[in-house]
Write a protein that binds this DNA or RNA. Structure first.
Lengths: 109, 109
DNA sequence: TATAAATGTAACCATTAGGTTACGCAAATA
DNA sequence: TATTTGCGTAACCTAATGGTTACATTTATA
């Protein structure tokens, strides 16, 4: 199974988890509260994120705090960023496009 | 099945296809020559990329030219870009990190 | 010490992914 | 006109995804 950043961010729930952890470290249950899927399902997503080295854990008593390792998102950023020139070439107005996109879809989801 | 940019770039072969098409439009066979999987497999990837609206086609005779629609990579870029601040906060030297990363892994793969 | 809380894991299921080979069909060519 | 070329698609396979429920384990608490 592929275990890289692109795999990590392929699933919308995993992206949401990343967004949550970008704000602050959270326990597994605290993460699960934000979703309507079972806690074991969250555990599975966390396991994949761990294998992709996007999150890591720190055990405190019976709790397990999850935190993000943001630098490991960089390869994905770098890959996509190579196409920035391409967009800028092809779009009449990149800025306008972004503005419209954000206006239409503020949460990017 | 999910059909969004993140799904499109989740597979390494599809990323390679995007890289090829970023340089120039290519026929299906021309794309397939770059891989060691069967042509139908390439067709499947192209179908997914089409559904994700990352590539489109233009038929010319019996050939089918594939071209990239780079602006549709923007949502992925925007999502990832939000974590740029996070990296910059957490890394001692962002520039050094990138330099090391590229030195270690020049093709980003 | 008995119990509740926080969590991982196993077993299971349906669907999708990613590949294959075999075949069909339209367009170009001999 | 017969054949090759450039594809798409169908049928099939195996493995991975993403979810579930049931249970085990460790740690805190009553």
């Amino acid at each position: 199974m592929r275990r890289d950043v692109f795999q990590a961010i392929a699933d919308p729930k995993r992206r949401e988890i990343i967004e949550l952890l970008a704000k602050e470290p959270l326990t597994v249950n605290a993460i699960a509260e934000n979703f309507n899927i079972s806690r074991p399902a969250i555990s599975k997503h966390l396991k994949i994120l761990k294998e992709c080295e996007i999150v890591d854990f720190k055990k405190e008593g019976r709790e397990r705090f999850c935190f993000i390792k943001p630098k490991n998102l960089i390869p994905a950023f770098m890959w996509i960023d190579r196409y920035r020139d391409l967009w800028e070439d092809k779009l009449d107005s990149f800025e306008d496009y972004l503005a419209k996109l954000q206006a239409k879809n503020p949460s990017d989801e």
